[in-house]
Design a protein around this nucleic acid. Structure first.
Length: 445
RNA sequence: GUCGCCAUCGUCUAACGGCUCAGGACAUCAGGUUCUCAUCCUGAAGAUUGGGGGUUCGAAUCCCCCUGGCGACACCA
């Protein structure tokens, strides 16, 4: 059987990191088996749609290297009448009914209503709801959890399938579309587990065969509960803007919910596609701890070639991009081992292309005036201005004066950068040039 | 509250009845390298596998109960 999976986001805002993970698993499951990955935009709630988010989703899937083989937009499919037709079929077979109760929402719904009061009133218009049978057992084998899950239909509520605006709810749309698009495996977030019996019933009453359905674990916030934007960063956009590399972010989230037998950590998407094994899916909910993401990101930054990293800095920092290419590369080399994300670049290396403000109190008890005065004298004789020459002259000075090496370089460092933490400071001086270096020293004397 | 899912170091996890008084990674701590910070290399600490009962010659692994965590209970997805 051909494997066809789908990613079915609703365009209601920025893409959630958990959604990206779902997409990655669906993509991988399909590609591991040489199958198709389908993108389906679930925009059946016009009220919640956010302009531009559909395009954003596509842009991000592309950025992360997960091209889709087919694209469907549910709102466009509404016009074809497929959902209406399915609802009518359910109506005529007696498995659905019209309801005229006022709509409820999570605020107004004070308690769970299992059996809708309209189910026996024979209305001829209104929202169309599923007539859930009494006293039946319903069960399925979860593809991800790898367990049988069952419900008593007495616990399952009559639920809306088609709204009065003619749009289907998720529950109808997912059944009609997964079936029509020949989806073989439907991977979705565990939030959907409780509504699965509704979908199963709908498949049955429509004489359709459900796909393999699997529920992915819920990514938890360190604060507790679902990872949410109230507590943490959750939008993929934000992570990218914060300087995380797509490859690192993807690697990290893939391992939140899936693990290989050999506990390997570093995977490119292609390698993950090759290594994928459904037995690796986790059953319990992982906690999203950003420390590990930081580690992944550092690893990926160090794996980059200097040229690759340099071009990322150019995009991230306009002042840097105006430097001459040789200087850029020199700076990038100094920084590559010292940052965990692209946004660390400016705080660490900004002084190399922008004169810093130097807070004199940073010098503390250092004899910095003494250090710098002598340094200026010695450095003015350095020619040519290379790191080796600078270092040689300085070490000679330190030895002659009997200073502590660390103390001297700390004065040097602070005067040049305004910071106590920098790349090796003589390399920095080389990049800054003789004139600028000496001028910065004189500025604090 | 009701229904459902889950339960191994702080975190992500390995272990699919015996090779395990539980292995790896992140984080932490210590040491080495070093002009600081990192990188890199060494090492340490860290889980009697949530608790209690079974089954078995033998259980982290199977079963039951409890507890805990999470999720869902909209004409939202």
């Amino acid at each position: 059987m051909e494997i066809r999976t789908r990613f079915a986001p609703s365009p209601t805002g920025s893409l959630h990191i958990g959604s990206l993970r779902t997409a990655a698993y669906a993509y991988t499951l399909a590609k591991h088996n040489g199958g198709q990955f389908i993108l389906r935009i679930e925009d059946t709630d016009q009220k919640r749609e956010v302009a531009g988010s559909r395009e954003k989703i596509m842009e991000l899937l592309t950025l992360f290297g997960m091209p889709w083989d087919e694209l469907y937009i549910q709102s466009e499919r509404v016009k074809t009448g497929v959902y209406q037709k399915a609802a009518n079929a359910l109506l005529s077979s007696g498995h659905a009914f019209f309801c005229q109760c006022p709509p409820r929402n999570s605020k107004t719904a004070s308690e769970k209503v299992l059996r809708d009061p309209c189910r026996d009133k024979n209305f001829t218009s209104g929202a169309i709801k599923l007539r859930v049978p009494d006293n039946e057992k319903i069960e399925f084998h979860d593809y991800v959890l790898n367990t049988d899950i069952h419900w008593d239909t007495n616990e399952v509520a009559d639920i809306t399938l088609l709204k009065t605006d003619g749009f289907p709810t998720y529950h109808l749309a997912v059944v009609v579309d997964d079936s029509e698009m020949k989806i073989s495996h439907a991977l979705r977030a565990a939030e959907w587990l409780p509504s699965t019996p509704v979908h199963l019933l709908t498949y049955r009453y429509l004489n359709l065969i459900p796909p393999q359905i699997g529920h992915l674990t819920v990514v938890l916030d360190p604060e507790g509960g679902k990872l949410s934007k109230r507590k943490s960063t959750v939008s993929v956009d934000r992570f990218i803007a914060d300087g995380y590399l797509p490859e690192a972010l993807l690697n990290f989230i893939i391992l939140l919910g899936w693990a290989p037998k050999d506990n390997r950590e570093l995977f490119t998407l292609d390698e993950f596609v090759t290594a994928f094994d459904p037995n690796g899916f986790q059953k319990s909910n992982p906690v999203f701890h950003i420390e590990k993401l930081d580690w992944f990101n550092g690893e990926y930054i160090r794996q980059l070639s200097v040229e690759q990293l340099n071009s990322l800095f150019i995009v991230h920092c306009s002042l840097f991009s105006s430097l001459n290419p040789k200087k850029q590369i020199a700076i990038t080399k100094l920084v590559q081992d010292r940052i965990v994300k692209l946004s660390d670049f400016n705080p660490l290396a900004g002084f190399l292309f922008e004169r810093p403000k130097v807070d004199i109190s940073l010098f503390g008890n250092l004899d910095y005036k003494e250090h710098l005065k002598s340094a200026v004298e010695v450095l003015s004789l350095v020619n040519p201005w290379t790191n080796e020459n600078i270092q040689e002259k300085l070490m000679g000075l330190i030895k002659e004066k009997g200073w502590k090496t660390g103390d001297f370089f700390m004065s040097f460092r602070i005067a040049l950068s305004g910071s106590k933490f920098t790349p090796p400071i003589t390399n920095c001086a080389e990049i800054l040039g003789k004139e600028e270096t000496i001028s910065r020293f004189e500025a604090v004397l």
